[in-house]
Structures are given as C-alpha cells and as structure tokens.
Nucleic acid binder design. Structure first.
Lengths: 371, 371
DNA sequence: CTGTTAGCGCTTTCAT
DNA sequence: ATGAAAGCGCTAACAG
C-alpha cells in the first residue's frame, strides 16, 4: 500500500452491497422515529423510553437481525473502532504471541485490528508511513511493531504533523513517550546471573543486526552488566535466521582459535573462547546449535546456551535448550491499552513490561569446562 | 468479539477526531464545487475538466495533504475495501506464510486486511460466526482460514442467509464452491513415492486430529495411495504440538512392540514397525524426533522421516529433515483473488493450488533397514 | 418521553 | 465543463 498523496484512481467497486436491516427499517416497523430506535439500541442513559416501546424495538431489532452500520456510525462519531497493527511478518513465533495478546485485548476493548505488513526498507519512521491510515479514517491509531531503530532526528521535521495516535511496540520510536517495550536488560541479566553463578567468566551474545532496537538494548545491557561483574563479553551480530546463527558461531569459534577478532567492550582478548552464550532468537539458535555440533563442541559441555526466545520446541531438541521466557502476550495487551489511552487523548507515559519473565531451565547450561 | 444480535452499548468514544483536509476544503481553496474536485481526484473518465482547474485541484490537494475519508467514501459506495481474515493463531509458521501471501495480494488489489483470531470452539461454521463483519460493513468479505471441519449439514438452515462473500482457506467449508485449498493428496503422494522407491513397505502418518480438514484429506489420500501400492499404513492422530508428536510416536512404537494396536486401513497387522513416517506439522516433528531419540531409534537408519511442513530450521536439526514444501503464499494470494471475485459478484469455482510443491531433500530419509 | 433537524464527508445522477 | 441536489445510515443536540 503506497502512500501517494491523494488517492490514486481506486479499482472501482462492482456490485452494490446487500441490504441489511437499517435503523429506519426497524423504526418504521415499530412506528417510531429512527432517533428513538438509536437511543434505545445504544442504551442511551440520558433518556428513558416507554417500556412497551423499548421492548418492541429490541424485539424487532433482534428479529430483523439488525446490525448497526459501522461505517455510518464511525463517520458520525468520528471514531472507527479499528487499530492498525504494523508487523514484520517473520517466521519467528514471538510475533504470533505478541499478536495474540494484542488481538485479544483489542477485542475486549471493542476494537478491531487491521494488520499491515511492514514495508521493506522504510526510510521514514513507520509512524509517518502509516499515518495515512488514520488520516483516511481507516483506523483510530497505529500499533507499530516494526523492529528497526531509526535515527531520532528523522522524525524531527514531521513531528508536529505526527499528532496521530501511535505506539511503538517492542521497540522505541524516534520520539520518546510512545513506546511499549519489554525489559530486555532484565532478560540479559537473567542469563548473565545464571551462568556467572555457575562460574562462567567469558560469555557471548549472538543476536540480530544492531539496527534492531531490541538487539541494541540487549547489547547495551550486556555490556554494562558484564563490566560490572568483570565478565568478558563477545557480541556477534548476524541476520535473524538459522544461517545468521550459524555464521555468528563460526566467527566466534574462528576468533577463539586465535584469529583474534575484536572482543566487544574493549576487554582484553585473553582467555580463549566464551563458555556461555545467549542467542537472541529461536531461528538463530538452530544455526548456532548446528554449527557447534558440526565442529564437535558439546552443549553444555563445551558451551552453555540460552535462548532469549522461549518456544516449546526447545524442550524437544537433541539438547533441550534453556531459555528466557518473555512476557509477549502482556506486551501486546499493554500496547493496545497504551494506544487506546492515546486515542482517548489521555496523557500516558512510556511503558516497560517486566512481568512475567523467567528462566526456563532445561539442559543446555552447565558449569564451564575445567581448562 | 461476541456476536450479540444488535450492538451492546459500545464503550463510547472520547475525543473528536483531528481534522484532515476535506473535499470541500480544497474545493473552496480552488473556487469550484466539491463534485468537481471529486471527479478530478478520482480520475472520472466520463467528464473532462479545464486543464487549469484540473491542475490547480491536484496541486492544492497535494499541498493540503488531502486524503479521502475512507468511511464516507465506503458509506456512499457501499464497499469498504477491507477483507476480514479469520485465522487460528498457532505457533506453526505455516500461518505466517499464508498470511503474508494474503496480505501482499490484498494490498496489491487495493484491499486492507483485518485480522480476527479464530474463536475457541465454535459450534457454528465460521461463515455464520463472522458474517456480522460484513453485515456491519466492516469488511466486504471473509477469508476463513480456520482449520476444523464442520459437518456439512450444520450450515444447511442458514445457507440462504449466507450470501456473504466468503472463502474457506486451506480447508473445505460446509458448502462446496467457496474453498481454496492446496493439493494435500499430492503432498502425501510425494512422500509415498519417495519412500516406496527406496523400498519401504510399511509407512506411517502422524498428524493432527481428524477434525482438522487438511488432516482428514491427507489421511484419505494416504489410505488410497497405500492401498494402490500395497503399502501398509498406520495413521496416528494427536494434537498439533510437540507433545502430540511425542505421544503419537510412543503409541507407534508400543504398537510395533507387539501390543497390536489397530492398523489403519484394515491391513493385516503383520511385519512390525513402519520404517518411514510423514509428520503433518513442524511442531509435531520436534516431538517425533525426540521420542525416537529417547528410545535410541536412529533417523534415518531405523526410521525415515518427512515433514509435511517446510521450514528453514529443519535443515539445521541434528538430523536435517526432508520435507514437502507447500505453496503457502500462493494459497494466501489465491484466496484473496477468489474472495474478491465473489465480492464482485463473479461466479467462481473452488480452487486447488498445486504449484509450486516440492520435496526438499535432506538427510532424514534412507532405504529401510534390512531386517 | 419522543420527534425534528442537521449533518459526518463523499459520490453521483441530473441539470445547466 | 461544472454546479445543484440528494442521499449512504447513523447520531446528537434541541425542541416540544
């Protein structure tokens, strides 16, 4: 869907819609004015109606199968009852959980959700790419679950125009104040504390490209926490795919073999390979495990592994993988609430979802090998 | 979202919408009537306009950032430009691919897609549960990608009312004529031919519950093809989860151990365990592999395995798994086309997507063990 | 208690 | 070549 200024010649409709009972139909049937019917059916608390009329209206409405025309109503009320949800359609199951949380909450709050797939390589921040949906009254607000960070200045010029209700989900947007994210630092710490307690000294983080906001935040958190604990950290960025995980692992191993790559954080490159590694996504995890297997490194014997995506399938792999379970449905649900608040003109803050988050212990973590 | 006859007291909107340039605004600015502006902007082929006016209209429209109000337009045209897509939000990545194909095509054809999650245990066929979306003018038609089969008589009574444009995606609906499905028999045959050529005589199919339409069709196809080829077939139905795959495998092994379960197809229960198995979903596949591993059966040494869901991660498992890649994006895209045809009142037939379908050869299939 | 009156913003004959 | 007028179906003051 392009964002051409005015509307390009639309593909023209073909067939007239079928007729559903209208307000006036039931008004006629009952013998009252449409406004009366409207009031009754909407449960207008202000006025009261003669019980017999009230009864009769409901009865015929029901029997005629009356359904209010959402279009007409929305046009009048200036409120569509729909939210647009912009998502990157990745294979990664986290989006499904997020989506479910959001859908569920939206429907509880009386909103429908329309889904848009993220545009390939948007130069502009999503809020400005999709605001047309609100401008055209297709939706009341935007749920932006795209993943790439965007230089904050990019939005600067248009920010005045950006009075469109929107919320960035699982990422921070270019402006503060409209973000709903999870506690990525907390997740990283869960991993770090777990392996540090077991005696690991050198750890790694394999994750997606830095342009992805969650990745960025996890890396920062890892840097900080490792510095504080005196752990040596290596960070590898690759695509969020199996191949990416494979490639990252190869780089990691090669580096450990003495090639002396850059050790992130500027820590002295001594001491050999990391003995524990967190992996940012399920897809990458498959690649990581395959790469380790290929060179005969055992998990968790030689390398402890923790997935930062939880998924049931992890329990069934050849080595069941420990993971951090993130509050994804809660994130989706909170995002919807945050957006609705903004639509209602409330002045709401950024939100960070911390609970429930937990380490799912399986078999991929053990003390470091004694060297 | 419930399907209460008329509308329950809606949570009332709060804030007036912000103002976007309207048709009349630009009409005033240019000094012409709104109808003229409308004609120009919609590229009305009938009338022609003075070039200078034409120019000026477009210019001010652009500069005022005019966006037609979709609500008003839809109300007038009796055509919303939206499709409702009802899906079961499963972890299974096939839905993501299907969704992508559908979204993509819909946007090409000028439609937006609103997503609804499938209701838990719908007693009624989805077409009747969701027709309110069309009745309320929220959408022009229904894409029903729910998975459960429904006794065809269930729709009988209401079928007259069911003049709502709809299409069942990846399943057959209760009435014929509105289905868009893939060639499940073809997929099953791909598996069967492959393993039969390698010399396997006893095969199994582990899949979801029979209530799932694709499962039902695969089972039928498998029965037929095995009978024709003289193969012995065992069919196991379990949940579409890792646990389900695990449970099915255990049942399979136990049976082979002499417990003498029912061999599907009524074939004589001779000859021991199957040596090749197709698994209906990725999630189950994880469970199947874990269960085989747990009892020390090797893949493909003791058992050849084929996944009927293709996913990149299969290439990275401890034993890379051969699979059948189904035309999922094509299915989504075809479904959208089929639905739009029905919205346009065209008289379109059921469609079956056959291409592209292929066997992705990896390492989980080998000749049967010599016994 | 209920009917009247105005539209929401746009499209579309029908005149001119 | 353009304007006038009439709504789409519903809601929301404001009368009575």
């Amino acid at each position: 869907m392009t964002v051409e200024p005015p509307s390009p010649p639309v593909p023209a409709p073909r067939k007239a819609g079928r007729r559903t009972a209208r307000l006036v139909d039931i008004a006629e049937a009952v013998g009252v004015h449409t406004s009366t019917v409207s009031r009754v059916l909407n449960g207008d608390p202000a006025q009261s109606v003669r019980p017999e009329i009230y009864e009769k209206i409901w009865r015929t409405a029901r029997q005629q199968g009356y359904r209010p025309n959402a279009l007409a109503r929305a046009l009048k009320r200036r409120h569509t009852g729909a939210l647009a949800f912009v998502i990157p359609l990745l294979r990664n199951p986290i989006w499904v959980r997020l989506q479910r949380g959001a859908l569920q909450r939206a429907s509880e709050r009386g909103y429908a959700v329309m889904i848009m797939e993220e545009e390939e390589m948007a130069a502009a921040p999503p809020a400005s790419s999709y605001r047309y949906l609100v401008d055209e009254s297709r939706a009341d607000g935007l749920l932006l679950a795209t993943s790439l960070r965007i230089p904050s200045h990019a939005e600067g010029g248009t920010s005045g125009l950006l009075a469109v209700p929107h919320v960035y989900v699982n990422r921070r947007g270019p402006e503060r104040g409209n973000d709903v994210v999870m506690d990525e630092p907390g997740a990283v710490r869960l991993f770090l504390e777990h392996v540090a307690a077991l005696g690991h000294q050198r750890v790694a983080l394999i994750d997606g490209p830095v342009e992805v906001d969650t990745v960025h935040r996890r890396e920062l958190a890892a840097r900080r926490a490792c510095a504080a604990r005196g752990l040596q950290l290596t960070v590898l960025h690759e695509d969020v795919t199996e191949e990416g995980g494979w490639a990252a692992t190869q780089r990691l191993l090669r580096r450990g073999a003495g090639a002396g790559g850059t050790v992130a954080g500027g820590a002295p490159a001594g001491g050999g390979l990391p003995t524990a590694c967190a992996v940012g996504s399920l897809n990458q995890m498959f690649g990581v495990m395959a790469a380790l297997r290929a060179v005969g490194r055992s998990v968790p014997g030689d390398m402890s592994l923790v997935s930062l995506d939880e998924d049931e399938c992890l329990a069934f792999l050849d080595v069941p993988v420990t993971s951090v379970a993130m509050p994804l449905p809660e994130l989706g649900s909170a995002a919807v609430d945050a957006l609705i608040a903004r639509i209602d003109g409330e002045n709401a803050p950024d939100v960070m979802i911390r609970e429930p988050m937990s380490l799912v212990h399986r078999d991929s973590v053990a003390p470091p090998p004694r060297s």
